[in-house]
Amino acid sequence: MDSLDIQEVMRARQGDREAFTRLMRQLETPMYAVAKQIVQRDEDCADAMQETVFIAYKSMYTLREPAYFRTWIIRILINECRRLLKQRNKQVPLTDLSDKPSPSPEEDDGLELREAIDSLELPMRLVVVLHYIQDLPIKEVARTLEISEGTVKSRLYRAREKLLRWMEKSRGVESQYESR
């Protein structure tokens, strides 16, 4: 279960507030990364994360398997992000990079990849983020998203294909400008 301690989860499940707080602190960064991929705006990420923590705390007793605590939390977060998007009745925008300073050559590849991931449809973007960025195994991604492992694998395959085409197209455009 990654670095989360099952005993800590058990204590939190029995009402230990400090144990729950420690668990939430450990998951803060992964939760933010997932929320950011779905809702994009920092204030929406904060809202979704806050609501997720509240829901998780209230319903901690419903967690059946402590080993899947992280999966359970991420699932709640994804549902909250989707609810927030519906509530705000908006589309998921591409990240606006225009106000940011120009990246160094090393950072440029990272920004290019981030932009490529942002261009994926939400179902594919979620599996990419959970599997490659959050380092969840395919089985956990399937459990988190409540889809089959085969669906996760096919979405990862299609996402890799789209990312490769996106990157090739992006680099092709760059080389066109560089040759002038």
Score class of each variant (00 low, 15 high):
residue 9 V to W: 03
residue 11 R to I: 00
residue 12 A to C: 06
residue 13 R to G: 11
residue 16 D to C: 01
residue 16 D to W: 01
residue 16 D to K: 02
residue 19 A to D: 00
residue 20 F to E: 03
residue 20 F to S: 00
residue 24 M to Q: 04
residue 25 R to P: 00
residue 26 Q to I: 03
residue 27 L to H: 06
residue 27 L to I: 06
residue 32 Y to M: 14
residue 33 A to E: 13
residue 36 K to I: 07
residue 36 K to D: 10
residue 39 V to G: 00
residue 40 Q to V: 15
residue 40 Q to F: 11
residue 41 R to H: 14
residue 44 D to T: 05
residue 44 D to Q: 08
residue 48 A to G: 05
residue 49 M to I: 10
residue 52 T to V: 01
residue 56 A to H: 05
residue 56 A to Q: 03
residue 61 Y to V: 08
residue 61 Y to H: 13
residue 62 T to P: 00
residue 64 R to G: 12
residue 65 E to Q: 12
residue 68 Y to Q: 06
residue 69 F to L: 02
residue 70 R to E: 04
residue 71 T to S: 14
residue 72 W to R: 06
residue 74 I to C: 02
residue 75 R to P: 00
residue 76 I to Q: 07
residue 79 N to I: 06
residue 81 C to T: 05
residue 86 K to Q: 14
residue 89 N to G: 13
residue 94 L to F: 03
residue 98 S to I: 14
residue 98 S to T: 15
residue 99 D to V: 13
residue 101 P to K: 11
residue 103 P to A: 11
residue 104 S to W: 10
residue 105 P to S: 11
residue 105 P to V: 09
residue 108 D to V: 07
residue 109 D to M: 11
residue 111 L to D: 08
residue 113 L to C: 12
residue 113 L to F: 13
residue 114 R to I: 03
residue 117 I to Q: 01
residue 118 D to G: 09
residue 118 D to W: 05
residue 119 S to I: 07
residue 122 L to T: 10
residue 126 L to D: 04
residue 129 V to R: 09
residue 130 L to C: 04
residue 132 Y to A: 02
residue 134 Q to A: 09
residue 135 D to N: 10
residue 136 L to V: 02
residue 137 P to V: 07
residue 142 A to G: 08
residue 145 L to S: 04
residue 146 E to M: 13
residue 147 I to R: 04
residue 151 T to W: 11
residue 152 V to S: 01
residue 153 K to M: 04
residue 155 R to P: 07
residue 156 L to D: 04
residue 156 L to K: 05
residue 157 Y to M: 13
residue 160 R to H: 09
residue 162 K to Q: 15
residue 162 K to I: 15
residue 165 R to W: 06
residue 168 E to D: 07
residue 170 S to Y: 12
residue 173 V to M: 11
residue 174 E to K: 14
residue 176 Q to F: 14
residue 176 Q to P: 03
residue 176 Q to A: 13
residue 180 R to M: 07
